[in-house]
Design a protein around this nucleic acid. Sequence first.
DNA 1: ATGGTCGTCACACGA
Length: 262
Amino acid sequence: MPFTLATWNINSVRLREGLVARLMNEEQPDVLCLQECKSPVDKIPLEQFRSLGYTHFVARGQKGYNGVAIFSKIPMEDAGHRDFVGKGDARHVAARLENGVTVHNFYVPAGGDVPDREVNEKFGHKLDFLTEMRDWFHAERPGKSIMVGDLNIAPREDDVWSHKQLLKVVSHTPIEVEHLGQTQDAGDWVDVTRADIPDGQLYSWWSYRARDWDTSDRGRRLDHIWASGDIANAGHNSRILRPVRGWEQPSDHAPVFASFDL
DNA sequence: ATGGTCGTCACACGA
């Protein structure tokens, strides 16, 4: 049974309820994973999403920060969550679809401005979070799984507008790329987006601070869809919906899509 | 080289 999955950092699900509904209406992903909901779970607007067919829902939330949610038209059960780095942050939730596929939804810490854990504890937190993900995936050996989210790292040279100018900018530093690579290897994860679209610049995030994000096009690919090796071949039709970044009062992230024939 | 913009929550803080 084929299905389509999307991941989107929404930057407040309450402020952008209408944009979420528009994406559901226009694109109809079977499963939609959101990050940065910035809302307690009991204040996430559900009614409109339910009326659009997204009758299944799991989430983790906290007031004002972080927050991850999975909306699905496919029946699914809560597959738990983990408090990486033990700060009580709502940065991970998992669900098991009725077809047996487990979906992990992550929001990796952004890491602050200075890429040095000695002077910026947020950068250390980001690296520690990735290390704990690596060790967990190594122990769990996930099979028949998809892992998505805002990983806040653009690993490849063609995942950023300027490799050279971003080498010392948090999200593209070698130590972050190394940590992300180890996390990917530990779970035998395949980068589905890049398996589908191996060549060329690819971005999912453009800063709010640019005068004209579309023209300057200084983007980064921070949002990812990975699949475990046993189902990675089923992934296809990957795409990033760049026009969504130009919708009214948008998130600074565009949604990333992939379909799976399973 | 610097500052540029958002969202949340009520003062800065995180991104």
